[in-house]
Amino acid sequence: MIQLKTMLNCIDNSGAAIVECVQVMKKRGIRPAANIGDRIIVVVQKQRSFGQEGPGGSGLSIANKVRRGDIRHAVVVRAHKEQQRKDGSYIRFDDNACVLINKSGDPIGTRLTGVVGAELRDKKWSKILSLAPLHV
């Protein structure tokens, strides 16, 4: 249940660490809530430190692609609220996490850390799924 003001972890290498949800897209209601695979608009609240990219990113060592205060689109990849699957099972994670994307739907980062929900497959986020190390 990600809604206005929810703080999420950003699990890609775009440079954002913690983002805040400001809008849930394509949902109606008084307090629309996003779940795994839903698109949201976020504000970057905390950046990752620059040094972290150094050894992993080799010579490229790009500066952060996003800065604090940027407004970006994102896809929810993990949610703390349990979600029912079509086979009756439920899935829930310990945190809320998202991946930043541009307006056309491609991920801004090039690597993901951490597991993502398999609901992304149903919602056609195959580019994010291919970047993810794991999905359950």
């Binding site: 009756g88 099972s89 439920y90 829930r92 994670f93 597991v115 190390p133 794991l134 359950v136």
Partner: peptide, 12 residues
């Protein structure tokens, strides 16, 4: 804990 993220699944 999958990749250090707690994950729970209710399986029939």
């Amino acid at each position: 804990q999958v990749t250090r993220v707690g994950t729970e699944m209710d399986i029939k």
